[in-house]
Amino acid sequence: MIDEHRQDLAAEYALDALDPESARAFEAMLANDAELKALADDLRETAAALALDAPAHLPPPELRERILSRIRAEAEAGAPAAPTATAVAPSTEAPVPSGGGRNLLPWALAAGFAITTAALWMERGSLQQDRTALLQEARELRNRDFLAKVKIATLSAQVDAYSKATAVIVWDAEKQHGVVKLNNVPPAGAGKDYQLWVIDPKYPAPVNGGLVPVNAEGIARVSFSPDQPISKADKFAISLEPAGGVPKATGPIVLLGGN
């Protein structure tokens, strides 16, 4: 059984919220504790699943035109000045085309290709810089605020048959949305389904979080949003209910935790 202190460490490790020295110490613990490592892996995966629900950052639509305009301006500023016209004596020989006139079209095509390629390269570089900056900003925000906004709960077996099961829930109170991940859970059985409940002190009964389908390998990963607004997710519970679920918990609680 993993004690609460190590559960907390695993949660902070999953969110990259440990300082480097603490992270190294925790990784040393993981090397000698397969159960703790499995929990840490589940926490990372579940937290990542919740993070993927965040809206993607899209570059402003004017970015490409801004880059192209800048490149055009730089290309015009660097173009050679047109030669000054001078009077020349007429010649009886057939005129020989100058290299400039003959090569104007290929040069223009090459220049256009170069500008377009440069624009795409600069746009890609700019987007990459934006992405890097956003990732860094997101990491800093996560390290500073994520633990305050997001709750990670590990559920413990309430029935002997579930002693080898692991259950992790990541709950975002601001978004009223969460992800539950189960491992090594026995089949629900014929005519039965697992159902998630959120225990909020302001409600007299647990709030329905929806069904948690478990596959043949005993694994489940489900996103959920409770039926009612949650002020404080004090605990989470998973019960065994009639197939299709019920509006109020009636079956045995098999997994419980959250504090």
Rank of each mutant, 00 (worst) to 15 (best):
R6L: 12
D8A: 15
L9F: 07
E12Q: 08
E12S: 06
L15A: 14
L15E: 13
D16F: 04
D16C: 09
A23E: 10
A25M: 08
A28V: 00
M29C: 03
L30S: 01
D33S: 07
D33Y: 03
L39Q: 01
D41A: 04
D42F: 01
L43M: 15
T46K: 02
A47I: 05
A49L: 12
A54I: 07
P55Q: 09
A56F: 04
L58M: 07
P60Q: 03
L63Y: 01
S69Y: 06
R70V: 04
E74W: 10
A75Y: 10
A77D: 14
A82T: 07
A87F: 07
V88G: 04
A94N: 04
P95G: 07
P95A: 07
S98T: 13
G100P: 08
G100D: 14
G100A: 11
G101K: 05
R102C: 14
L104N: 08
A108R: 06
L109A: 13
F113E: 10
A118H: 06
G125M: 08
G125L: 06
S126G: 04
S126Y: 05
L127H: 04
L127A: 05
T132F: 10
T132Q: 13
L135S: 06
Q136A: 11
E137S: 12
R139F: 03
R139N: 10
E140N: 09
R142L: 12
R144P: 01
D145E: 14
F146M: 11
L147T: 15
L147M: 11
K149H: 13
K149T: 15
V150L: 11
V150A: 11
I152G: 13
A153R: 00
S156K: 08
Q158K: 11
Q158R: 12
V159P: 00
S163R: 08
A165P: 00
A165I: 01
V168W: 01
A173N: 14
Q176S: 10
H177G: 10
V179K: 04
K181A: 07
L182V: 02
L182I: 03
N184D: 00
P186R: 11
P186W: 12
P187R: 00
G189W: 06
A190G: 13
D193Q: 08
Q195L: 09
K202Q: 12
Y203T: 15
Y203N: 12
P204G: 14
P204D: 12
A205D: 09
P206W: 07
N208G: 01
G209R: 00
G210I: 08
G210K: 02
G210H: 02
L211A: 03
V212W: 01
V214T: 10
V214E: 04
N215P: 08
E217T: 07
I219G: 01
R221Y: 00
R221N: 02
Q228F: 07
K232Q: 13
K232L: 15
K232G: 08
A237S: 14
L240P: 00
L240E: 01
P242Y: 09
A243W: 02
A243I: 03
A249Q: 15
A249T: 09
G251P: 06
P252A: 13
I253C: 02
V254M: 02
